[in-house]
Each structure stands twice: as structure tokens, then as C-alpha cells.
Design a protein around this nucleic acid. Structure first.
Lengths: 290, 290
DNA sequence: TTTAGTTACGCTATACGTAACTATC
DNA sequence: GATAGTTACGTATAGCGTAACTAAA
């Protein structure tokens, strides 16, 4: 269970090919073969079927573990190295697109005005990747947005010890295409929409909805990106329903936004960070959460 | 960041000695010295100060990561091996002491009556160790008890992908020593007790209370075991207050049990398991959750 | 001076690449 | 027969133990 072998294993599984993995990792194909053999010998189980290369049942199980394991390993290394890192003048802020809502943007602007020496680089990413970005040290601060019950914390992928703090909570709306029979309603109950077709997006993962509401929420179209505009366009074209914070749906933007009456859910934004680098990071964090 | 070196590092840190770690791990002291040196060279940072042996700031940071990392590694191995394990006739059930409450015990008895071929070995352990026990495959099923808001899941230490299902929820009482001024009350608000002295026990961790209620809850005496009787005895002797499910406090047992009015909290029991071994395990799980 | 971690050095086992082999499409 | 993974084998090196060394109590 050497992480080195684990990395090789996930690479082979991803490519479905020893040779391709060898090329990516800078080894010969023979070395990859030997590494996989070593891993299989260690566990005493075949992990891959050959020709075509695909994981066995045990291999699939291992894949589920390997990715988060390797992530945590990288996170641990990054965290330890951070304790000895140079002070940075530039603060790297990563956020999910919906996390930068009007309230958060205003606080950011306020902090920028009050802290003239603060330099912030902002990038957005999918919610499911944000924690990894912060944990691995590619961002100093993370603003994660997600769906949760009021004042409940978000369920973030576990990437090691991290500090989280609630920032804002905003009510959710169901995004309906024009002409939808329910478009005129003042509010909607999600329980009445479990049988509708929904967009599967990282911004509103259906698995999370099933978790919070119950079974149903069949996926219409799956969109793997994190762009709100694209989601709105897809929703307007009737590919499926989705849930967004009210402020993210423009008035008269071709879709109808109907508030969610039950269950009580919000779009919650949380600030997360590992050890903060010295400097303005703590000030910015205070400005965002305070 | 080889797990092998990580294991050596945590062992050395725990013992505060290279030689003691060498003895435990079956190496020479020289090998340990070389392993620590290799780890420090890999990270480019000193992790331990010598004579006396104690972790540096970076070392302390690494220790926080290393334990859960190694746990997950063992859990991954156990989980993969489980896919090829022989069917077991004996089902190993691990539970926190408070998880085996009257309702759960009755369901267990019912399952035993309906499934004559079911053989169950039950062991108890501290709540914070239960997830690890199940993840590492030392138990097939786990019954975890803990304090949570009603219908909220427990916060279990993350030891990899695991299935959880709620089993029971029971109201909580404050355990007061005889003669306590509040003993006569019909109910109590925890917010009024934040300044009292509390028992620090794995069954009712004060960190969790601070999380759910707010600051305060100073620790009187810390008890590291998982024995309910001991906790009751300590509470009766006035070492501090604690929270227990109502069914765990015997009537006329030398202590007063006063229901908690606010915030709304319960003692929740959850069933957790990784991949279930073939056989009666699924039946028992169904009997407990159904 | 004793105790405890480090360094030098030799040995072995591991892990890689080259190249020959083999099985599958 | 071409493609792709395996096996054999030679070499480099990483990791351990023995033993000599060094620094702190």
C-alpha cells in the first residue's frame, strides 16, 4: 500500500492502459507492470483485469480509497511545508462561483478599501474541488458555497484538519424554464418536484438533494463545469430544473425563479483555510466572517 | 512522506525516544535515526528536537495529519481485503456503551430470535474509536452513540467511505449530584450551565457541547474510559456535570436526572459499516435500523 | 562518565531499464 | 502479425545492522 504504487494504480485505472500510465509517470511500461504486480502481491488480490485493462471488484474498492488518501497525503505535506513558508504579499483566494454573492463581494470590497496593502488573486472552481485546492496549498483561503439546512455546516470532502467559518446564508429558488406550468407559483415544495428532471451540476449536486429531501431527482443533463451562466442557459432551454441562490438568477433572464418553501434549505457560504500565512490573510478572513 | 517513515515518526513522538520506538518497531536505534533523518530531508524541515526528543512546530503539524492518514491507509487495506474475505459465521458487533440502550437491545434480541443461525460477538469501546474499529475491519458492524441535534447525523471521525444509518434518538438529561441546587428542577437549559464544572468524558465530550451550545463547559475531571457506571459515580461524587441519555441514569441511583429543555439535543445512535460480509450481517443491520 | 542520537560502512533487497517473451485482439 | 502486458536479468540504490563516533546531561 505504498502511495507510490497507489499513484501508479490510479493512473493506470484512469487511462485504462499500462503504457499510457508509463508515459504520464515517466516510467517504462515494464516498471508499471512490476509496480502493479507488487501492489497486487502486497494485497494478495488481482486489482486489474488485463486486455482490456479494467479494475476488478477489489480494484474498484481500492480506487474509492486511493484518491482521497493521496489527496490527504499531499495536503499533509503542503500543511507542514506551510509552517516554514515565506510570508506572501499576494493572497490567493479560491471560491465557488456562487460563493461570491453580492454580500461577499461587498465585504471583499470593504476589506480592500480598509487594507490598502492587501493584494488578492481570486479564482473560481467547482465546489467539490475547493477543499482540495485549499488543503494542497494552491489557495490560501477558500470560499465554499453549497446547499445545506439553515445554520448547518456544509458537507465538504474531508481533506484534513481545516478551519471553517460560516459567512452568509441565502434562500434558494427553483429555476424553471419559461412556460413551465409551475412558473407562476409564489413558492414551491421540493417534495412536489422529486419526479421532475433535474440538471446534474457541481453547483447543485442531485446526490445532495436526495440526501436532504429524499429519493428522486432524476438527472436530465449532466454539466461538469462550474459556470453559472451555462447552468442558467441549460435551465432556460428546459434541460432540467436546478436550485440556485436567489441573487444568482437575474430578473427577466429568460427563466423563472420560484422560492423554495419546504424543506427549509439555504445556499450557505463558508470560509475555509488551513494554517493562515502571516500577513493580511487573517484580516481578510475576519472581514469576510465578521 | 512514506507511510513507513510516518509510522516511525509518530512512534518516536509518542515515546519521546528513538530507542523506545526502535524497540517497539523491531528496528535498531540507528535505523530509526536514519528514518527520521530521511523524513526530515524529504520535507526539508526539522521535525524533532533532540535531547529531549520533542516535536518542532512543523512536527506537531505533521502529527495531526499522520494519525488519521495512517488510519485511513489501514482502513483502505482492510476494506479491499474484505472484498475477498471468507464468509464469517460470527458477526462482530462493536458499540459505544450508551448505544446499547433498551430499544437497541430489544431489537438485537428480536433479531436473535428471528435469525437462529446468527451468532453475534459484542464489544464496547469509546465513541471516538468506534469508526476506526469498523474501518480497520476489527468489527463488522458498529453502533455509535453520540450527542447531536434531532435528526442530525453524528460527527464521526472520517475513516473512509462508510455506510451510516440512524437507529434511535433519545432525549438527554443533565446528571446532577445529590443536593445540587438545581436538582429539583423539571428541566434545565444548557445555556444556564455553561459556567458549571463538567466531566470531560468520551461519552459526553465537552468540545462537542461547546460546538453545539457555545463557549464554556469548563472541565472538572477528565475520565478517559468508556464505563457508564464510573461516569455516574464520578457525577454523584460531584466531580462535575455530564449529559447522558435518560435511560442510562438509574432511578434512585444517587444522582438526579433533569431533562434538557434547550437547546434541543438528543443522544443519537447510528449503525455504521463498511462493505458487509456475506451472511446474516445484512439481516442484523436491517433489524437494527428497521 | 553515562546515556542517547548520529555517522560510516558493508551487505542485502528492492526497483528500475533493457530485452526477450507471451498472450490477446 | 501487431499490440500490449509479462518475465528474465543486470545494475543502481535505498535501507538496514554493526560498530565507531559525538554531544548532551
Amino acid at each position: 500500500m505504498d502511495p507510490h504504487l497507489l499513484t501508479t494504480f490510479v493512473t493506470v485505472a484512469r487511462h485504462g492502459s499500462f503504457s499510457a500510465a508509463a508515459a504520464e509517470l515517466g516510467y517504462t511500461q515494464s516498471a508499471i507492470s512490476q509496480q502493479i504486480a507488487a501492489l497486487e502481491a502486497d494485497l494478495g488480490l488481482p486489482l486489474l483485469r488485463r486486455r482490456p485493462v479494467e479494475p476488478t471488484a477489489a480494484g474498484r474498492r481500492l480506487l474509492e480509497h486511493a484518491e482521497p488518501l493521496l489527496l490527504r497525503l499531499r495536503a499533509a505535506r503542503a500543511d507542514v511545508l506551510r509552517t516554514a513558508a515565506e510570508p506572501r504579499h499576494l493572497l490567493r483566494l479560491a471560491a465557488t462561483p456562487l460563493a461570491v454573492n453580492p454580500a461577499v463581494a461587498a465585504r471583499l470590497a470593504g476589506a480592500g478599501a480598509r487594507l490598502p496593502r492587501l493584494e488578492v488573486a481570486l479564482r473560481t472552481c467547482r465546489p467539490d474541488r475547493l477543499a482540495a485546492l485549499v488543503a494542497e496549498g494552491h489557495a490560501d483561503l477558500g470560499l465554499a458555497g453549497g446547499i445545506a439546512a439553515p445554520s448547518d455546516p456544509l458537507r465538504l470532502p474531508d481533506a484534513g484538519p481545516m478551519t471553517t467559518a460560516g459567512v452568509t446564508e441565502e434562500s434558494l429558488v427553483v429555476v424553471l424554464p419559461p412556460g413551465h406550468p409551475l412558473a407562476g407559483r409564489a413558492s414551491l415544495r421540493l417534495a412536489d418536484l422529486v419526479d421532475a428532471r433535474w440538471l446534474q451540476t457541481p453547483l447543485c449536486p442531485l446526490a445532495r438533494l436526495r440526501d436532504l429531501v429524499g429519493d428522486g431527482f432524476a438527472a436530465g443533463l449532466e454539466y461538469e463545469g462550474d459556470d453559472v451562466h451555462t447552468v442558467l442557459t441549460l435551465a432556460a432551454a428546459g434541460h432540467g430544473l436546478t436550485l440556485l441562490p436567489a441573487s444568482a438568477v437575474p430578473a427577466g433572464g429568460g427563466v423563472h425563479a420560484v422560492p423554495v418553501a419546504a424543506p427549509r434549505l439555504v445556499h450557505r457560504v463558508e470560509l475555509l483555510h488551513a494554517a493562515l500565512p502571516p500577513g493580511a490573510a487573517a484580516d481578510l478572513a475576519a472581514a469576510l466572517t465578521g
